[in-house]
Write a protein that binds this DNA or RNA. Structure first.
Lengths: 343, 343
DNA sequence: TTGAAAGCGCTAACAT
DNA sequence: ATGTTAGCGCTTTCAA
């Protein structure tokens, strides 16, 4: 109750227990330099017996090397980012690097705080979602002295490297496909998230491409909160009551699209004849619906992998590679809700 | 190209720029001790102008205090853990603590590695999923000298604190509800994951409760990989072809249950009259299906919140509170697939 | 192959 | 209210 009952073990303890200098113990534990097999075993045994866990805080301070990579994303509840993370994880799996995740809830101020907090641990790299950041955030990224990869979007100028798709172009491609299939009366549904810049870019690309074909969106609606599937249902019903002439519904994400799809099936609507549908993201989870929703893959896993690889290559011994830009190309999957031939 | 072109800033730089001692700069930046408003401003201005970001590695080493909490979970791709995380995040939101997430993919050896890695950063607390760990993992947890909360399960003996539900009991409760509603010919479908101990405990609780009523599971099947919704569909079809007399299907998770539900609806099966269905998890995402699947909430968010609160209270100035056990009680939601009255 | 000394950037503890 | 000194636990560098 008086003296430290549980002082954490240090190299010194292992050194004492094994009769080997701290320095040599350190070498053994890091597999650095030449150590005789005999002392090696002595040290390893002592460390194991004591249950010694090295202190990376001290190690990092002394060596000026940190194996942490900051990963900053807007959300986890959203199917998309976990998949990016899993791509990152896979690439770092057999490297010394370790991702540390921070979540911003799509709030620029929170992004700023989270980044500051993470930079204070002097990570070896930063992977951050999006290209739009506060002035201060951009300044911190630029001054961080560590490779930065902005992901998920390539419509803009990165601080350093970037990996993603063009959401403008994704929206435009979908618009072209819809037009090509002969649909003309188009409605749009999305989330009420002014801060989701990527969704907005998609929408802009979409409307611009329609405009070029002389088509305008005839109805639109935005939701926030609640279960996406249920919202998709409700919004679809409401929109079709309001605008019964629509022949195509473009949803900003697959989940609300699926809700709409389920409702339309129940109503006995002919899909994709009477009404066509498309979502966005290529959510694998939805394979197994009565019909496959048309969608466009956001290349989430590939984005994560590519970003992690960039950090890896710019962190290696040689290091200092150039800033890179990788633009992935999403492909449309037509599913059963976007017909392939004109009527 | 020769001299450090980008030496990270230190307190010393801020000290020099502001003409205030390092110690006082440190005090200002941490809001500790009395500092005159005048010097305070000088320091803050200098720090901001330089773009100084404190080095927490050095800070942590010097103060022997780390505001990191290790959170170790099996998976992110699975709807359930992100929700636990978000509960944890919320509680830590306005505290100095910061969660750091590690993923084990349900592999005990990976759990061991991840824990070791995280303990080497000397976190202020550990939140780890499950009660079953390797010998070495338990030893590390016990010796960590930091509060440990094992979450999601309370069927077993914790190293320190635990928060969760009894999966045995959850399985048993569902069995009782099914029996009470008059179903007698029961099939089970789940994931082929011997390492998901919680799913297994649910299954055991389920079969034991059935056995007490003299009922045995008449068919069972397990899947791995692929889209859960699609698998639920396929397995359900296969099982009913094999065992056409079944009148109830219990699924180990909501997603495969939803797949089964969709298929049965398409087949025009009378639900819950001819066949009843239930899943597990209370996945909010599924609100919006044509029918609401009966399920049982795993209290994911609450578990995360409670665990974070335990860490918080045991980390506070007073600290050292006792180990705690919190058993949450999941409730059945009957939805539209588990009838409320006997035929 | 092994060891000794110095110091990473910060904060605790003690002056003043 | 501010400054000084020592040292956190490790690694780097240099010496033996």
């Amino acid at each position: 109750m008086s003296d430290n009952p549980h002082r954490p073990l240090t190299l010194r303890d292992v050194s004492a227990a094994s009769g080997v200098s701290e320095m040599t113990v350190s070498r053994v534990l890091r597999n650095r330099g030449d150590v005789s097999e005999a002392t090696r075993q002595k040290v390893l045994t002592a460390a194991r017996d004591l249950g010694y866990v090295p202190n990376k805080i001290a190690g990092a301070l002394a060596s000026q090397r940190v194996n942490l990579v900051a990963v900053i994303i807007p959300s986890l509840s959203n199917m998309v980012f976990p998949e990016v993370l899993s791509g990152i994880n896979d690439v770092f799996e057999d490297s010394p690097l370790q991702p540390v995740v921070g979540v911003t809830d799509y709030q620029p101020e929170k992004e700023e705080r989270v980044l500051y907090e993470m930079l204070s641990w002097r990570p070896s790299g930063v992977i951050i979602a999006g290209l739009e950041h506060s002035e201060a955030t951009r300044a911190m990224l630029a001054a961080s002295g560590t490779p930065v990869v902005e992901i998920m979007d390539t419509d803009g100028k990165p601080v350093d490297s970037m990996v993603g798709i063009s959401h403008r172009r994704a929206g435009a491609e979908m618009a072209k496909a819809i037009i090509k299939e002969g649909y003309e009366h188009i409605g749009f549904m999305g989330t009420k998230m002014p801060l989701d810049r990527r969704a907005r870019k998609r929408f802009e690309g979409f409307t611009e491409a329609l405009a070029k074909a002389g088509i305008e969106i005839e109805d639109r609606d935005f939701y926030s909160g609640g279960s996406a599937l249920a919202k998709g249902r409700e919004m679809t019903q409401a929109m079709l009551e309001r605008s019964p002439d629509l022949d195509f519904l473009y949803y900003s994400n697959d989940l609300i699209g699926a809700g709409g799809l389920l409702w339309l099936i129940e109503q006995g609507v002919d899909i994709p004849g009477q009404i066509g549908l498309a979502g966005f993201n290529g959510v694998e989870l939805l394979q197994g619906l009565p019909r496959q929703l048309a969608t466009m893959d956001a290349c989430r896993r590939e984005v994560g992998e590519a970003a992690a690889k960039i950090i890896l290559e710019r962190t290696g011994e040689d290091s200092s590679g150039e800033a890179r830009t990788i633009t992935l190309t999403p492909t449309i999957s037509f599913g059963d809700t976007l017909r392939r031939h004109r009527r």
